[in-house]
Design a protein around this nucleic acid. Structure first.
Lengths: 238, 238
DNA sequence: CGACCTCATTGCGCCACCGCAACGACCCTT
DNA sequence: AAGGGTCGTTGCGGTGGCGCAATGAGGTCG
């Protein structure tokens, strides 16, 4: 969505912004004032844009890096709701009057985002129906996504869920290396466990078994897929 | 949201419609043409408004009865995504250009809904920003809801999930009877299992155990809560 | 009113997955 | 180079929940 040079500049240009799903179909003239209202924010790895329970004041669109959205239960269990890449919006609740963020947004590597004051974004939404319809589409697709993961969680075994998740990450942010396809950001066993509804022990055992079979190669916060087809066979059970 | 007399009439009036979340804050004058464009549809129990995979042509707002949205996996497993009551919208994908319905909408008791042609609704959304923002809010709140259930599914035991679900149903559509609070529509063990990510066997065993302890009273597609506080203690683990 | 269908119950065996505990590998800091 | 912190691995025992199979309990329809 955004190329890496973008993070160097203070703000991306309107042409780049129009490639973000939220802003597609909106002409560059109309986007300029939106850009004017934006501020660029950068967070180093493992720091947060906002935290579950904080007052929801800003709305973000990621331009660079990677962010994970998590939720914690009262008992302290954590789940990863989704991973956010360049071009994705997050903190949307600030734009339509929710008082607090329902989840935490943490950079998993250095990340930069455009931010808007919630009220500003709300005004923009109400003044441009195309923007509102785009936002609707974005949220709806996120709902679809979550519905599918919800269904997987109730109907499928752990092994398949983990395989699916790794393949999805590789599809979204795989980088070709000589050994195969590597997931292009640090991802721990704990992250995978919290994304698939299982424990670090089970993830570790699964990945080890796959490694023995030559399907993957892995290390500290690093996973390389050596045999995608083999993993797909596990994920889809052919 | 709608009283029962409403189903008798062909269409509810604009005043009633303005109490639907999707239409709140929109003045009755503006609602009249929306109503004009609507058609009322009734389905008997266990029949469908639409089916997963069908071409997404209509958008609905339920006025009477109860509907469940389900998804089936390629292997034939079924999950219940949500239950729909009067005032709730469903089939929203038809309004923004998705080609097919991702889920099935089945009446669990006789149900009546207002329906709009998807393109008509799309035009309405683009012409009235308040409507689009309302729709955004509705979808966002559904996303929150699903995120919470997703989190519960990964972090909580079956017993607690089932207790929670029964309490939620009672809160949303409980009817006072002399024995306690009864869920006001037919609900089978299978429905509960598909709503909580478990099996009919486990649900049956749990409900039987609760019945022995005097917490609930149940029969064929019928559940009465005798001791809400006792169930809450299971759901919240005090 | 009897036949049939759907829905619910429960005994029983099983196993996928959990989670502690101990250890090992890797990275960063000074 | 040493030491501490984070992350990953794996043996082991325990169990929550699954799912078959058989039976029972209601509803419905002719």
């Amino acid at each position: 969505m955004f190329d890496s040079t973008m993070a160097q500049r203070d703000l991306p240009d309107a042409a780049a912004l129009s490639r973000v799903p939220l802003f597609t179909g909106i002409d560059e003239r109309a986007l300029r004032p939106v850009l004017q209202a934006a501020q660029s924010v950068t967070r180093p790895a493992s720091e947060r844009f906002f935290q579950q329970g904080d007052a929801a004041s800003f709305f973000y669109v990621l331009t660079h890096g990677r962010v994970k959205m998590t939720q914690v239960t009262p008992e302290g269990h954590q789940v990863v709701l989704r991973l956010i890449g360049p071009g994705d919006a997050f903190g949307g609740v600030a734009a339509f009057g929710d008082p607090i963020y329902p989840a935490t947004a943490e950079a998993i590597e250095q990340a930069t985002a455009l931010s808007w004051d919630g009220q500003t974004m709300h005004r923009l939404l109400e003044s441009d129906p195309r923007l509102a319809v785009n936002a609707l589409r974005v949220v709806a697709s996120r709902l679809h996504d979550l519905q599918n993961r919800y269904r997987e969680l109730t109907t499928e075994r752990v092994e398949r869920r983990v395989a699916r998740t790794i393949l999805r990450l590789a599809r979204e942010s795989g980088r070709k290396v000589d050994a195969g396809v590597q997931i292009d950001f640090p991802i721990s066993r704990e992250d995978l466990a919290e994304m698939t509804g299982t424990t670090i022990y089970t993830v570790s055992r699964l990945v080890s078994a796959w490694e023995e079979r030559g399907l993957v190669e892995s290390g500290r916060q690093r996973i390389v897929i050596r045999n995608p087809h083999g993993l797909v066979r596990i994920a889809e059970d052919l």
